[in-house]
Design a protein around this nucleic acid. Sequence first.
DNA 1: GCCCTGAGTGTAAGCGCATACATCATGAAA
DNA 2: TTTCATGATGTATGCGCTTACACTCAGGGC
Lengths: 367, 367
Amino acid sequence: MAKASTVYDVAAHSGVSIATVSRVLRRPGDVRASTRERVLASVRELGYVPSAAARGLAASRTGVLGLYFPSLDAMEELGDAEFLPAPGAPLVDLVVDMPDSGVVRPPNLYFDEVLRGSEFEAWRQGFALMVGVGRGTNPTDMVGDIAGRVDGMAILAQSVSAEVLEHVSRRIPVVLIAGPRRGDDFDHVSVGNTEGMQALTTHLIDGCAVTDFAYVAGPVDSPDDAERHAGFVAALHSRGLDPAQVPVHRGEFSRLRGRAVASTLLDGRRMPRAVVCANDQMALGVLDVLGAHGVSVPGDVIVTGFDGIEAGRQASPRLTTVRQPMVDLGRAAMRAILSRLENPDQAPISLRLPVKVLLRESSEGHL
Amino acid sequence: MAKASTVYDVAAHSGVSIATVSRVLRRPGDVRASTRERVLASVRELGYVPSAAARGLAASRTGVLGLYFPSLDAMEELGDAEFLPAPGAPLVDLVVDMPDSGVVRPPNLYFDEVLRGSEFEAWRQGFALMVGVGRGTNPTDMVGDIAGRVDGMAILAQSVSAEVLEHVSRRIPVVLIAGPRRGDDFDHVSVGNTEGMQALTTHLIDGCAVTDFAYVAGPVDSPDDAERHAGFVAALHSRGLDPAQVPVHRGEFSRLRGRAVASTLLDGRRMPRAVVCANDQMALGVLDVLGAHGVSVPGDVIVTGFDGIEAGRQASPRLTTVRQPMVDLGRAAMRAILSRLENPDQAPISLRLPVKVLLRESSEGHL
DNA sequence: GCCCTGAGTGTAAGCGCATACATCATGAAA
DNA sequence: TTTCATGATGTATGCGCTTACACTCAGGGC
């Protein structure tokens, strides 16, 4: 890394002008084969790697798409703790791992999957992906920072203020993930949260004769949660049941939270026939506790989730849930950005991806 | 996005020079408070977001770190399939989800975790992270592309050729993840694969009186796999057992592969006392099949994994494994890059993170 | 009153590349 | 031979920013 070589170095080394070097890399067909080979040889010899910054400046286009999520995991708690091993520390530690020992950082499947989809689609379209995870302090800086580096970006709805969105969108296309449109003109991609939960709940009422529910909701600021609850309520309404009669337990989207709720339910007077959870993690927590207390699922209590994570498929009983296409959500977000990039004046996009209600053993005794 | 505004626009709008605008953003302390406010007001009003490309060019430093992984998932199979819903398609699909229905794309925990750690540490150090996932075709282009955009990058060992590494490292610091040093001078970060597997195997021999093993290995080109197997062999040697007597089933690191191996074992003459797997996914696959065939674990057969993924903790019986600090691996990689950036001439780093052997029910009957 | 100092600001020179345009060479057509 | 069209290459400019350096303008010390 003595001093990264540039087009000038390559040009001098191969006896051509910098324009020719640039052409060899951008439009090889425009250069005579012999010249091309000579230049490429110099490139190899000098270890030349073009500077994306310079290219981006000149072409006013970075070839990068951005993805911004607020912090959804417990990562920030890692803080400054020294994770590097002390010199001479043993490389192995033998531990008898008792059940429930250790702190488990719930993996954020949602983020992982959306990220995968985004990266995949960005790659397919010839773009690189830059990720940013907001962490407490100020999302503004982070979002602005990314915005300066990319040709367009996707942002999880409600993770940054309207002003910031407004500001950033003056420079690049912004698409919101997972939020409903609310009077803004941004492009949106989301999934059929409401419809999925409504379909599932309707099935529970019509197909499983449930009239007695408990609802385990997520955080108040979750756009997904709001939509799912709306679908739940709509289903009750449509069948003449009174949503006001259904106890709602609100909290974070975690397995631990699900366990806590289940414990509360067990302590209560009587169990509902069905516990409908706004996401799978919570539902798995509910299953944990019911299972430990010998409550039969779905015999005594039906439990359902939402998301369709793999752990739900591995659970016992396997979890009835609504599969939302998280990977596709990421892909769709990138597509939406590119679509607007190509056609800046098109009407705001509002894409809603379909979900799939997966009926499994936690609701269907006969499977 | 009429036309992204620049320093010139802001300067004109607030009646100062572009140098002052730049100072307001970079070193606010050098500018009189009144001037600063005026400039910031213009920034807000014009929706100005500085171009990272221009900044990077001028400062010859991008503020981005890169992470490159070869494709480890089945994502490329998604290909061109149209995932966007057809106009008017129903938003909900009700499906009776039978066990084992549907194709499961095994989540690549390893990548996810390393990515998280990388992103986290990069953020802590004031950098953004750019990710690249190699997909068949040519890693060279992808790695080169990223290399042109970042100040330094981490690359999964053995995912790109030595020539490319050499080439790219002429421009930026490169650190290799998970590979042992092999005559190169790159910086490396890895975990105690060998030591962990050796400790676990030794425990099985000494603590569980196992003398009769089967070994389920990963792909031949996996650096991790090679190290783990070496640890396994070392343990046998140290206890006077002959590694040549142990059947090795080699294949990909997947749950399905684990199932296949378990089926093969069941078909064979006799079961080994312990099935040692080179990763958790395969071990879970083995558990799946043994469980389905009524084989008692650990009563009849002991099963162990490697990685320490969450699913292993949820399995029944809970999986004995070696926890490798994947998140920390990502963090350490970023640290190594920055360390070399600060001090280009230091000796090659070769950091090895400690692992933890987690003894759980799949090997310890009494837990 | 003069000079010096330093805070605050402006001027201008790149950073490394893409690209419009100019130039040059070549061979076919006249 | 001369004329052009065409392909190949070079020249020169600008992308938007940082920053060394120059400059201006108080105020303090003499």
